[in-house]
Design a protein around this nucleic acid. Structure first.
Length: 139
RNA sequence: GCGGAAGGCUGGAUGGCCGAUUGACCCCCUGGGGUUGGUAGGAAAGUCCGGACUCCAAACAGCAACGGUGCCGGGUAACGCCCGGGCAGGGCAACCUGACGGAAAGCGCCACAGAAAACAAACCUCCCCGGUCCGCCGGGGAAAGGGUGAAAAGGUGGGGUAAGAGCCCACCGCGCCGCUGGCAACAGGGGUGGCAUGGCAAGCCCCACCGGGAGCAAUGCCAAAUAGGGACCGUGUGCCGCUGGCAACAGAGGCAGGGAUGCUAUUGCCCUAGCAGGUCCGGGUUGGCAGCUGUAGCUUGUGUGGCAACGCACAAGUCAGAGGAAUGGUCAUCUAUGGGGGGCAACCCCUUGGACAGAAUCCGGCUUACAGGCCUUCCGCGCGU
């Protein structure tokens, strides 16, 4: 009952061409190639998740903020994967639009146990600091 | 009250804030916004059976091969499922369990032990006769007893005998033939045979019945871009009445209109080549739409037939449809459970913290997982009356 492939990813927003300043929506990564490119870019780890960020090249995509989620089978069974994915999706929705300053793809990767059990406040602050860290790093 | 058997239900609740997806309606209209309604499970799981549906093949047939099923009757769209019954085994009982057709069609196997494991045979033994150096030896009869084994060629008792033996008899078992009850599996009882038929078919096999293959990543359609491949066609419309036919339609005829490309060939006809056109087929890429959720329906209620599974009738409701995959995140209060403390008790306080598990085309089953709670019926024992 595993949907398509090993990397399990959820989607949050509907694809749209809304201006980023007024819309809290963001596009979801759907293509495997986007995930592979993000995996080669800068990344940082926190207790609850791993964050990858890849800045867009000029005019690459219309939407400046795109997010993907990965919860592989290492996270657990289908119930555990879904729960981890939902919490990641929620912190991304709450945090990313306010802290992401440049056009980039973000990929959040769930971790076994921790993603589903850590306090929600801690996950949000961890994401905030992780984004700052990656954005201040010269790549 | 204790112990047990069978069946069923449930599987956290409420609220605040912030979301996702989808149906309907409205508004601006590539696309979005608003209002309102819906939004996981009993197993959604394993993917083990049975179907619906789609495509492929083809006479949807038969045969062969292969696979499956296997007491009887019923239920069902169907099943390897369910219900009822029979038989066998287990349990004091409620009840549970069952690959439960065929071993006088054939082949094969039956370890170890044992003399012998399937044309029976004779280790110890029993009996008779003869011999004897009294230890036993030779010839013959027997298969009861001992011993081995999962199993030793009917069992028990009596008669009989040298000792024995279905050799004879009674009962039991078994085979065969009637009878009675039952739709049947089967059961009961009668007669008869002196006993012939060891077990294994989750060994081959035989018999009966069932099965064409692949699967929603099926399949159909649209758009864009790419490629420009193969095959075929290339005069033919309308009206009118006639004939045949139930009809669709077919046949011959009449009238009217239109058309019969270009080149080569002297012309006509035929053939060939090229161009425009039409039809069909084929390869692969991306995105989208359909399939997609409402029916062999399902759920609830009532009535009715049936022991039951289930059927029939009526009424009401309609209950997830995603697509890197929505059905949620978070906080608070309550609550189930476990632990600790206080109190005679009801109870109170602190703490812990929620079983198995997440739809992917849809149904019917089976199997497996599951914290805790609740209900019904039945059995045994104990106590009271």
């Amino acid at each position: 009952m595993t949907p398509p492939e090993a990397p399990q990813v959820g989607t949050v927003a509907t694809p749209g061409a809304q201006p980023p300043a007024v819309s809290s929506r963001f596009e979801t990564l759907r293509k495997r190639s986007d995930f592979l490119r993000a995996a080669r870019a800068a990344h940082t780890a926190t207790p609850g998740f791993i964050l990858q960020m890849r800045r867009h090249s000029e005019g690459e995509v219309a939407n400046p903020l795109r997010v993907g989620f990965t919860c592989s089978k290492k996270v657990g069974n289908a119930v555990a994967r879904n729960r981890a994915k939902r919490r990641l999706r929620e912190i991304a929705r709450l945090v990313l639009p306010s802290v992401a300053t440049s056009a980039a793809d973000f990929v959040l990767i769930g971790r076994k146990q921790a993603t589903a059990t850590l306090p929600f406040d801690q996950l949000q602050s961890d994401l905030r600091s992780a984004v700052h860290k990656l954005q201040n790093t010269r790549r």
